[in-house]
Design a protein around this nucleic acid. Structure first.
Lengths: 197, 197, 197, 197
DNA sequence: AATGAATGAGCCTTCATTCAT
DNA sequence: TATGAATGAAGGCTCATTCAT
């Protein structure tokens, strides 16, 4: 594949990302993609032969973006206080929880429900684990510096990640108010850090 | 609608429940239902004119089952220790988290992603809230009897419910081991009750 | 068929007449009839096994009504002036031309387009011919009494009937104003009788 | 739409015209069209998404043909006698009245019964009015040249058009003999022009 | 006579996928 | 590479008609 083909592929991925964010995974047809990209049906098939294969590349691109973010955060680990980092992390999570429109998360959930198990392992778990590891790092450091008071940062991180994931799905299936999210995040923090409200 | 029609409807609901549990919501066609029920296409349309209307009745039937369970539990509130009840509750949740095949939960998630907002409110939130209230009741009682040591049973219940929901969705999207579930449930309990492992 | 059955049949015909008048012929289903009659599907089939056979009986009933009307008119032939009778006749026709809602005429047209040729002959032409004969009678008598000035009452009657039929179909396909109908009817009359406007 | 698509569309219109002429409007299904065109179901939907939209294009094509004919006639207005033109006009009408098979007129009637009022106005009335105007032109000119003896060419034209329309519908609903048509047309002419039989 | 649940043929419509250009 | 017309399988839905009760 030449350079040109690569940039064309990237173009398709970018456009498709918007489509999946707007419509989820199941409702997206090849026609939707074709129209969003303003290319021909046959043209799309030169690069992707199903919405699934395209979505996998969309996910991969998202993974890279997420990985970049983590790297940025990790670099900041030593120039900011753990509390600052934690607040930043939770703020990001809150944003993701409440960002109901134009978020890929519904597409991701939908895809996870139908896709082959082995693919889930590769492309999916990673995202969740990466965030978990970042949180764990923050907690560990806070524990070391004495900012946080927790017995087992690893288990705490897991617990928090599950609760955050729970809020995310609740937001998308039954709605959740910003106030409730704040309350819950605050509750979690109080378990291991002094919070001035 | 006569008695016969009601039992036929119940028959369809039962068969459909299996289908939805096996295939989720989006993949189920009227044809699937027809075949599962071994009736004619037109015959099904006498009772339901879409998979959605049928699914709503399936949910309603599930709600009733869940309501019965809660009632049973509440009746036991005063004959069992709070710790016993809590263990029972978490065992049930664990079962639901790990029951990956033949569970309606994926169908419910999928449906929640596409359905009209007002229906979510009615038929969906309820399920989550009911479980939350049961847990809150148990925690409250444990707090009163001194079995549990928690400051705010209500917020604790919310936190636990979100984490449980998070595990549920993780189990369905990326897999989760029984060991991990046990670990997480144990972690949650340790926060407010002495546990002998 | 017993007396009871006859009256039941008449009941069905009456209800069906309303349905055909409201929906034309093609759009009427056995279900429509069943609902209008508030009887069971099977019950209807005891009497009629298609909308066509039912419609034929509806037409027959209409024919009888029309025949009665003609008889009444013919009896009046000698007690009213021809001009009076002509005016009455045209007034009736005008009513029929403009009565766009709840008229059987669309159903009749629709049926005529699809039905077997031999049936048309029997049940259909009659209606048109009966009206033509009545008009001819009136014209003849007016000619005899010197009220009308026409060379060939028979041909005049045919001409008028065609023009009236033309207005009827135009009213149903493209609309026609009452003013236009009046103008046209007046034009026809002026050809053979003095009209004071 | 490229040139190719236009000619394909024209091809479909041509085949569909035959189908509508043979079966009327209501009985025609997308399947009928597909089979007549020998294309795939999906292929037809590329061009038309209902028998109605297709029929409207069929009508449009017919309108153009009719418009061409009128233009030809009008050009002949000054090179032929009005009597000649009138005879030509009536001959055309007679042809249309008696052409019972493979005529679109039944489809047009049927369509008019079910279509939205505003469409009738546009595509339907026109046909009738165009013919009426042509007739009026002929009559007017015959009046001016002294060939015809009529007081009000406009009203005469209207009267004749209604009678012709009446014959057309009678031909399709109850049958009409050629002899009768001739007799009626002759009768109409005699009212304003000397006819040698 | 009467009921109404049940059947299945038949039409409508969409969409992934192919292929000649 | 790129196009977009064409295909046909698959699912949705309706309705005349039957039949056990």
């Amino acid at each position: 594949m030449g350079e040109k083909a690569i940039s064309k592929k990237q173009y398709i991925i970018d456009k498709a990302t918007e489509v999946f964010a707007a419509k989820g995974f199941r409702d997206v047809t090849m026609k939707d993609i074709v129209e969003a990209c303003e290319i021909s049906r046959g043209g799309l098939y030169l690069y992707y032969d199903s919405t699934e294969s395209l979505f996998l590349d969309v996910l991969k691109a998202q993974d890279e973006i997420a990985a970049d973010r983590s790297k940025n955060l990790i670099e900041r680990l030593h120039v900011a206080s753990s509390t600052e980092l934690l607040l930043w992390f939770l703020k990001e999570q809150k944003k993701e929880i409440l960002k109901r429109q134009n978020s890929l998360s519904v597409a991701v959930y939908e895809y996870a429900f139908v896709c082959r198990q082995d693919i889930k392992k590769n492309s999916f778990k990673e995202n969740f684990d990466t965030a978990g590891k970042v949180l764990e790092m923050i907690l560990n450091r806070g524990y070391e510096t004495g900012e946080f008071e927790c017995e087992d940062p690893s288990e705490l991180a897991a617990n928090m990640m599950y609760a955050i994931e729970g809020m995310k799905i609740c937001a998308r299936t039954m709605g959740i108010s910003e106030k409730k999210v704040d309350k819950e995040l605050l509750y979690m923090m109080k378990q291991f850090v002094e919070v001035e409200e």
